[in-house]
Amino acid sequence: MLDEIDKKLLQHYQRGFPILARPYEEIGGQLGLPENEVIERFRRLSNEGLISRIGPVLNHSLLGVSSLVALAIPLDMIDSVAEIINSYEEVNHNYLREHYYNLWFVVTARSAQRLDEVIREIEDQSGAAALILPMEKNFHIDLGFKLWQSAQTS
């Protein structure tokens, strides 16, 4: 079970992780914990799969060209089409959703030409026409994910 300290670690260090020689000691200082306890708690949260990693979150738009793409695929073909889509290293998210357009994935490529090529290849192999939905404007400033109301105060 997560205690209040775990919740604070998960909530408050999604951004602003210290960039200095001993970041875990700095976090410990902020929360009143010894450095080794901060490290042990992060290790436990990682081992339990609650943390994917501690590291940089990159800006998509600076890394290449990306688009959300949707396909309408008959249910009995989902697995085989998903396998084709997932085989591209340019695809980093792929969700099955309840809708006529049921496969939703994000393609991020090094160039617009490569993005187009990946989408055309997936269309050819799946036999479905893609809805190509690149982001035109972002309205949300990404400050990390708010997990608990109670751990909000800082």
């Binding site: 998960l10 999604q14 940089p56 979150v57 800006n59 990404d142 400050l143 990390g144």
Partner: peptide, 21 residues
């Protein structure tokens, strides 16, 4: 710090697994 100020790195921190939480 430079990559953060140019926006290449959006933030540094832990990446929670929402589903597991």
């Amino acid at each position: 710090n430079q990559l953060m100020s140019t926006g290449t790195i959006r933030r540094i921190g832990l990446v929670p697994n929402h589903y597991k939480i």
